[in-house]
């Protein structure tokens, strides 16, 4: 059993979402430190609002302003808050029915200890210092009673909120397969370990695959491949993009190593872009040995060998 390589993987994206009319009014009101629901066909007031009536599916258009104070219907205790949650100290999650609303909203209650929580308790919204038109303009709720925070002047009338941005960040531990782990360790030694040759069809994959995608059987035999191969197909990159390492134009090509049955994508540099062609023979240009790691980036790029082109038939099955 090979010990597999693994590494942290952080995935993040700022989701921007356009709003329908009901949610647009809701978010616009939040920016003014007000809470607005919408009335459904059954007369119920939905907070947060819904765009369409749950019973008739008609668009809902009658806004109803409700209180920023309400009643806890049920709750749970969060002793160790997770990243992204409203508070970074222990708090309660609660379903809160605001005065004037018929449905409950889910939010955090800054109660300090679970002993201060009970269903039926009164809570009120704590507003962000600078609301922007987002559900997180309500920082959390807090037990009502005592003196309310001083009322804040409504914001100057401005354009309605029509878009919300929500950053999403997730953390993973990404594991390579046993074959990929051997391959990555091989790269750290300057070797190209392909394989898992398929016991059924004899094809050699690089990077290795756990199962032959054609036969569905585990691939076992390891095959060391040379760092020389053939360009099967390529494109000339003319468009700049975020994170680009090289100034366009440059060539991204599929390189089929000699003895392999699947090409991989890499860079072909070292000649004018208009000289790169299908069938061109290329060899790896490795980075200085002290920069090597368990990564394909050890090969900086491929460059032409100057050999005669490979005949089309030699790679026709690998396009």
């Amino acid at each position: 059993m090979v010990e597999v390589l693994s590494a942290p993987l952080e995935v993040g994206f700022d989701y921007t979402r356009s709003l329908g009319p009901a949610l647009s009014r809701f978010m616009t009101a939040l920016r003014e430190r007000r809470i607005e629901g919408v009335r459904g066909s059954d007369g119920r007031v939905y907070v947060p609002p819904v765009e369409y009536d749950p019973a008739t599916a008609e668009p809902l258009t009658e806004p109803v302003e409700v209180s920023a104070e309400g009643t806890v219907l049920s709750w749970s205790w969060m002793p160790e808050p997770l990243p992204g949650q409203p508070l970074d100290r222990p708090f309660a999650w609660a379903l809160i029915r605001l005065d004037g609303a018929d449905t409950a909203m889910l939010h955090a209650v800054d109660a300090g200890t679970p002993e201060r929580m009970r269903s039926g308790m009164r809570v009120r919204a704590r507003w962000a210092a600078e609301p922007v038109g987002h559900i997180r303009d309500i920082v959390c709720f807090e037990p009502a009673g005592g003196s309310a925070s001083p009322p804040t002047p409504a914001a100057e009338p401005a354009e309605p909120v029509t878009m919300v941005t929500t950053p999403i960040h997730l953390s993973y531990r990404h594991s390579a397969s046993p074959g990929e782990s051997r391959y990555l360790r091989g790269l750290a030694d300057g070797r190209l370990l392909g394989g898992g040759r398929c016991p059924a069809c004899g094809k050699v994959y690089i990077p290795p695959r756990g199962a032959c995608p054609a036969d569905g059987v585990p691939t076992a035999e390891e095959v060391e491949l040379p760092d020389v191969g053939t360009v099967t197909t390529f494109c000339i990159v003319n468009v700049p993009f975020l994170g680009q390492r090289i100034k366009p134009p440059y060539v991204a090509a599929y390189v089929l190593l000699d003895g392999a049955d699947i090409p991989f994508l890499h860079l072909v540099l070292g000649c004018p872009v208009d000289e790169v062609r299908m069938g061109m023979r290329v060899t790896a240009v490795w980075r200085p040995r002290e920069e090597w790691g368990t990564t394909m980036q050890n090969i900086d790029h491929f460059k032409p060998t100057g050999e005669p082109d490979a005949p089309f038939e030699s790679y026709a099955q690998h396009l």
Binding site: W75, S76, W77, L82, W93, M105, I135, T166
Partner: peptide
């Protein structure tokens, strides 16, 4: 829009 941005986790919702 109004729930996921608060990151309510699956266990907490089940607890409610």
């Amino acid at each position: 829009y109004v729930v996921a941005p608060l990151w309510p986790d699956s266990v907490s919702i089940a607890a409610i």
